[in-house]
Amino acid sequence: MPDIILETQNLKKYFKTRRGMLHAVDGVNLRIERGKTLGIVGESGCGKSTLGRTIVHLYEPTAGKILFNGTDISQLKKKEQKRLHTDMQMIFQDPFSSLNPRMSVQELILEPMLVNDIYDTREQVYAASAKLMDIVGLAKRLASAYPHELDGGRRQRIGIARALSVGPTFIVCDEPVSALDVSIQAQILNLLMDLQDEMGLTYMFITHDLSVVKHISNEIAVMYMGQVVEKAASDELFAHPLHPYTQALIAAIPTPDIDDGGFSDLEPIKGEVVSPVNPAPGCRFAVRCPYASSGCTDQELTLKEVRQKHYVACPYIETEEENDNTKV
């Protein structure tokens, strides 16, 4: 049995808007194994950040369960939630707006430890913050510097130190490298992977960048308009993308490669994401899908296992067994 640290069951998060219910996260079932990384990938507005925020309890879920270490945390009281925050942390996208500009680096790293009463004495807290700075690669001399004096990479290191300071086992990383230059991005990705190896952390890694998600994840879930449309091990997903949306996403990546004809044979998917307010039943990708027919919109679709540990929500993709049967 795999050791599951986090599981969501039919998790939903709706927002009330003037035009109706916005289905930001709509029935997501995920499982994350301890010590592994689950990548959540999708375009802007697909609900990936809302999913992350709902899991760490920054939003109340509308329906569904979140099981953390086997217990349902979706209905916790305020006090119990606070205890949870030492186990679950989040790293935010924008290291420019997620840090209080009036606090020094050391104060920023001390804050979560003080709020959560992690240590008994001040000496212990200061020692811990010095150690954290060392772990995330911030020089000692920066302890009294303010965020505006630092570049994006260093600021994101502060964000990582703050998340680590309370000793979590599970971290939701919400686009942690999107605001960074590519050479700095690589430094931070390496740091996150080293920390995972050393501390046995579990990550849920949210990003729109497919090459980053492939690099860091063991398993990947592709989201489209609040729903997971495909889920598989990282290598499997890129080797055999099955859902038409996943295929279109992968085809649209401009890889730094000059011998692939420069996009000349690419047929980008038409149209754009439609409104997630009161969505029509059935497959939400149907309006843009080149293979769509009436079968896509008359039924609610669920993920089904079509290859080993490879799940797709599309009525036209048959399981391997079904395929074999038809061949016989």
Binding site: E43, S44, H208, L210, A248, L249, A251, A252, I253, P254, F263, L266, P268, I269, E272
Partner: peptide, 8 residues
């Protein structure tokens, strides 16, 4: 822009 829109 998003990657599919970027390609367009």
């Amino acid at each position: 822009l998003d990657v599919t829109i970027q390609a367009q």
